[in-house]
């Protein structure tokens, strides 16, 4: 039964991918390419490219993509449900515990230690995206000429606008998308 197989496979991916993002990739590859042969390795690479280009968590994107290709829309729904089911159960439980016991001083202490770490992790993700935007897939080089000037200009302008006028971030991202679409098309 293909639907049960999809559900079970993506439940395992959802359950064992702790840390999110790229951590889920090898698990997805193992289930989808190695174990079940639902996608070829080339299709899997395409999937990762698409998942990177489009919004949403990579696990949800893969579930939808694989489900669609294997069993159409019902397949996509089943695979996506499977992938978020473990989160729903475990995180709901943690949410209940957190809101019940958050005032204990030991919990406050642990969370106080975690907060600066989370800021550091957000910063780390930000640096990765910025380097990707400025230097492209090739990654960081010491050569200043490799910097993508359009990307640098857009970043600087967007950052300045955010700091000064504090608009909705979605407005800024859409603006960058439109400007990027025009500038890169003209430049390319």
């Amino acid at each position: 039964m293909i639907f049960l197989e999809l559900l079970w496979s993506f439940m395992q991916i959802g359950l064992f991918s702790v840390g999110g993002g790229m951590a889920a990739m090898p698990l997805i590859q193992n289930q989808v390419v190695t174990l079940h042969g639902w996608l070829t390795l080339t299709e899997f690479t395409d999937l990762i490219t698409i998942a990177e280009m489009t919004p949403g968590p990579i696990a949800v994107n893969s579930a939808t993509f694989v489900g669609m290709r294997i069993a159409g829309l019902p397949g996509a729904l089943v695979a996506t449900a499977g992938c978020i089911l473990p989160s729903c159960i475990i995180v709901s439980l943690l949410a209940w515990l957190y809101f019940r016991y958050q005032n204990l001083s030991i919990i406050q202490g642990v969370l106080g230690g975690l907060r600066p770490a989370v800021v550091a992790l957000i910063a780390s993700a930000g640096v990765s995206i910025l380097l990707l935007a400025l230097w492209g897939e090739g990654g960081f080089t010491m050569n200043v000429q490799d910097i993508n000037l359009i990307a640098l200009g857009l970043f600087a302008a967007a950052f300045a606008v955010l700091r000064i006028w504090k608009p909705s971030p979605i407005l800024v991202m859409t603006g960058c998308g439109v400007l990027g679409g025009i500038l890169y098309t003209l430049a390319g």
Binding site: G126, I129, A151, L152
Partner: peptide, 12 residues
């Protein structure tokens, strides 16, 4: 590609 710069700015 343009949105990438915007995302980086929001995170920064």
């Amino acid at each position: 590609k343009g949105m990438q710069s915007g995302v980086a700015a929001v995170v920064a």
